[in-house]
Design a protein around this nucleic acid. Structure first.
Lengths: 217, 217
DNA sequence: CATCAATGTTAGTGCTTACTTACTGTATCA
DNA sequence: TGATACAGTAAGTAAGCACTAACATTGATG
């Protein structure tokens, strides 16, 4: 077994990384194979040896970086928390994941229609999983009476949508960016007030709910 | 004055419209001048007679369609309404405007970074105006005590952000689209609950909760 | 040392692109 | 009628693109 394979793997990865960067900066058509190879520090021909067609490289880029690890891993952690504390944590994690995958997201946003059905489906499933994870968190709290009744699936989309739009305006539309922590604070505050069960009488009841929540989990 | 100008104006407009369509379908690089001219039903040379460079046509496309008439005209109308009724009206109008400008928005979303500073600025101002219009509506209601205290500017962004994300997922990400009216109903309902001042006894309690909450973050 | 896989170099193919040149056709209007 | 303003046709340029062919170089492996 050749350890040259190690070297090979290195250049392949370098090509994929360079592809990610250039595709996201210039778009699929705007990124030339020559530039990609140069960015990866290899000869253009080497690119074609690994990926016979430009499209093959592109597919590999998407497949390599597309996995949005979702919020699943976060769930057990936040179930221990107070709802008011949990939402900012979720928002922060969500925004960090978006930032980490910024390049890929830009690619997907701008050229989604050009992609094969299969690629789109992968993406849809990722997004759907994020939504339903958060929705199930809401449902759990509704059953405990912490949250009032609302459509949890839609609420999850609304919540993540607010933050996605913030991310979008910051990264892609290039609006003067608002401070992230302030955004998280303000947005979640609105959302908390919009979803919390108003047990009529007040602070006492709410405090009860909160403490019950903490003890129960 | 020649009335031939009438004919000329016709072809120029046809070119701009064809440009809008093809740029948004295939992107700036993907849309060839040949195809655009063909779509407009004129010779390629005619395109270059009106727009010496492809870029000039593109700029004209953006300038022609970029005017987001915003929500301003809606303000007097909704000021007569109950807050709970007004929000869905705003949301509906906002979504309709996004849909009407779908093609332009797709262009801006996908190729924003490639544009000259001037073009971006126009866009920023449009968006900013939409935000601040809605924010000032919120502020008015806060002063009347209808709404509780929150940062109106951020709330406007959160509100429109929810709907923009819905629009985005429907038009660009091509997720199985949720029913628009249901989305409007669910999202605004969350928002109403999140922003309305609690009546009577509960008011004090909520204020307390809110201040506690702000310290916690 | 000989092998062999991976990469480099150089030159080139054929296609498409934005954009041009030169000339023709036609309706309008003074 | 003749000048003007616009559009069409046809042919072509120079550059860039994805992609290929032929051959040399490297370096680890056996």
């Amino acid at each position: 077994m050749k350890m040259a394979a190690g070297k090979s793997k290195g250049t392949k990865e370098k090509l994929i990384e360079a592809g990610l960067k250039l595709f996201s900066e210039k778009g699929y058509l705007g990124a030339s194979t020559k530039d990609i190879a140069a960015r990866a520090g290899v000869a253009e021909l080497t690119l074609f040896r690994h990926f016979p067609k430009k499209e093959d490289l592109f597919e590999e880029v998407v497949n390599t970086y597309t996995f949005l690890p979702a919020l699943k891993g976060l769930l057990p952690e936040i179930k221990e928390m107070d709802y008011r504390e949990a939402l900012p944590v979720i928002a922060r994690r969500f925004l960090r994941q978006l930032s980490d995958r910024r390049d890929l997201i830009r690619i997907m946003q701008s050229e989604f229609r050009l992609y094969p059905e299969q690629v789109r489906e992968i993406y849809h499933n990722c997004i759907g999983e994020v939504f339903s994870t958060l929705a199930s968190y809401f449902k759990g709290l509704q059953e405990k009476g912490v949250l009032r009744r609302f459509n949890a699936e839609y609420a999850a989309r609304a919540f993540l949508g607010m933050f996605f739009s913030y991310f979008n305006s910051r990264e892609f539309i290039l609006l003067e960016p608002l401070d992230e922590e302030t955004v998280i604070c303000e947005y979640t505050s609105l959302f908390v007030n919009g979803t919390l069960a108003a047990k009529g009488l007040a602070t006492g009841a709410r405090a009860q709910i909160n403490s019950r929540q903490k003890k129960a989990f």
